[in-house]
């Protein structure tokens, strides 16, 4: 059932060809510049990150949905002392963004002057164009001010 990870465009699917609601598949969609979540087929709850058991009704069938990628900044911080792989970027902002569709996503906030950051700021998702070299080689999404 699980395919090789070497082809980054191929999704992990079940025996019927349905793209499974997994973290790996979420990031493969990011590689196609799509910010995706899932909706529970039984209770219609939107879940992000995708998961295999609905935490509201315990359903296990989901449909992928694409988010518009727009939301508001709920909280943030400015990282001055980062983990090794992010050192070249410091200081940088990270925050939690509440999407129009409801889910709350953590992520880096880029191309915004640090002094302009404030709670309630309108943000828009974007995607890095390069894929990191280190495991697990997921393409990253991030947020920027919405135009």
């Amino acid at each position: 059932m699980v395919e090789s990870k070497t082809d980054k465009d191929s999704f992990i699917r079940d025996e019927n060809g349905v793209i499974l609601p997994t973290i790996e598949n979420f990031y493969r969609f990011c590689g196609q510049r799509k910010l995706m979540g899932v909706k529970c087929s039984r209770c219609q709850t939107i879940l992000w990150p995708p998961r295999s058991i609905c935490r509201k009704c315990f359903g296990d069938k989901f449909d992928w949905i694409e988010f518009q990628g727009k939301g508001k900044l709920m909280t943030y911080t400015i990282i001055h002392f980062p983990p090794t792989q992010f050192q070249a970027l410091a200081p940088y902002a990270v925050g939690i963004v509440k999407l129009t569709e409801g889910p709350q996503l953590p992520g880096m906030i880029r191309y915004v002057k640090l002094e302009d950051l404030r709670i309630g700021l309108n943000l828009q998702v974007d995607f890095e164009s390069t894929v990191p070299k280190e495991w697990p080689r997921w393409p990253r999404y991030f947020f920027k001010t919405s135009s």
Binding site: P49, I78, P83, W138
Partner: peptide, 24 residues
């Protein structure tokens, strides 16, 4: 790992976000 560490969110960063929310 996939949603905090992968996006450069350090441990102090998590409590930094709590602090900004509390201040606001």
């Amino acid at each position: 790992f996939p949603f905090e560490q992968w996006h450069g969110i350090s441990f102090p960063g998590i409590f930094g976000m709590m602090a900004v929310d509390h201040m606001h």
